[in-house]
């Protein structure tokens, strides 16, 4: 389409104009993208062969191991030789992070944890990356006690296929699944980001005691997610009281882009959290 081509050009021009060290926030309008990406197709994705191949240092430069070495720190373990490695593992993942509202809100809440947003749509990912870059630049030029945004990052990934390429067993303590695409049609239910079989992968990357947070405004999808997690022996639902005391639940309700939209429209938000249980002994 001619119109699309023109838009594309404008976008490219705009993105070219962004410079390293620029403190201006990116404009969302240049990053909008078709709402759905097909999780089954072969996207031109890049992903690490295994968690140890992942170049985390480019995403969290302030935590890069090599940097610490230069600063004269004692190098420890073989990881120190690896320029891709960072000083601590990523622990919190926002899956399908969209424009990143949750990430930016979580950053100051968990200043000592590394948080990653994962998003399948290229432009949307770029937007979040640009915004992180800009916020880091802004923070660097102020001396007040502001969040540095060095602990959040965003990468493009199809998490339904490649989650275990990024995270080792038991690496994560929290996974967020906020306002997942509902895929209303029955035929497309396998495209849902929660299912009995995918829950095994969430269980694999979560440590025992870790939590999966879900929120949606589609009641049917809520029931679906609750059903599929409750059926899975590796999870138990977190009780209402504990749920409401968790700061993450509040953040998830108020700070996600979708959460804000639902608030504006006076819609209902359904929350459910699930705890990763210890694996049972072998039979």
């Amino acid at each position: 389409m001619a119109g699309e081509g023109k838009n594309k050009n404008k976008r490219e021009e705009y993105k070219q104009s962004l410079k390293e060290g620029d403190a201006a926030l990116p404009q969302k309008k240049f990053y909008r993208q078709r709402a759905h990406a097909n999780p089954f197709s072969d996207h031109a994705l890049t992903y690490p062969k295994s968690p140890t191949d992942m170049n985390w240092a480019t995403h969290y430069p302030a935590y890069a191991l090599s940097k610490k070495e230069e600063a004269g720190d004692e190098a420890q373990g073989s990881g120190a030789q690896n320029p891709k490695a960072i000083t601590q593992p990523v622990e919190i993942a926002d899956i399908g992070c969209g424009f990143g509202g949750l990430l930016f809100a979580l950053a100051p809440n968990f200043p000592d944890k590394l948080i990653i947003g994962m998003e399948i749509r290229t432009s949307v990912t770029e937007y979040v990356q640009e915004k992180i870059r800009a916020l880091r630049t802004q923070a660097a030029s102020t001396t007040t006690n502001q969040p540095t945004y060095q602990n959040i990052a965003c990468l493009r990934a199809n998490t339904m296929k490649f989650l275990p390429n990024f995270f080792a067993r038991g690496q994560l303590s929290k996974i967020f699944l906020c306002f997942p695409d509902p895929h209303f049609k029955q035929r497309k239910h396998k495209a849902r980001i929660v299912s009995y079989t995918l829950n095994s992968e969430y269980a694999y990357v979560l440590r025992p005691g870790g939590i999966v947070y879900t929120i949606t405004d589609v009641e049917d999808l809520h029931n679906w997610m609750v059903g599929h997690f409750e059926k899975h022996p590796s999870f138990e639902r977190v009780g209402e009281e504990e749920q409401e005391e968790d700061v993450c639940v509040g953040v998830m309700r108020m700070e996600t882009e979708e959460g804000k939209k639902v608030t504006r429209n006076g819609g209902v938000k359904y929350v459910a959290c699930f705890r990763r249980l210890e694996d049972p002994p072998w039979p």
Binding site: A35, H36, P182, F184, V262
Partner: peptide, 10 residues
């Protein structure tokens, strides 16, 4: 229908 009128929709 899986969605309600209150659901935010693309």
């Amino acid at each position: 229908p899986a969605a309600s009128v209150l659901t935010v929709h693309s």
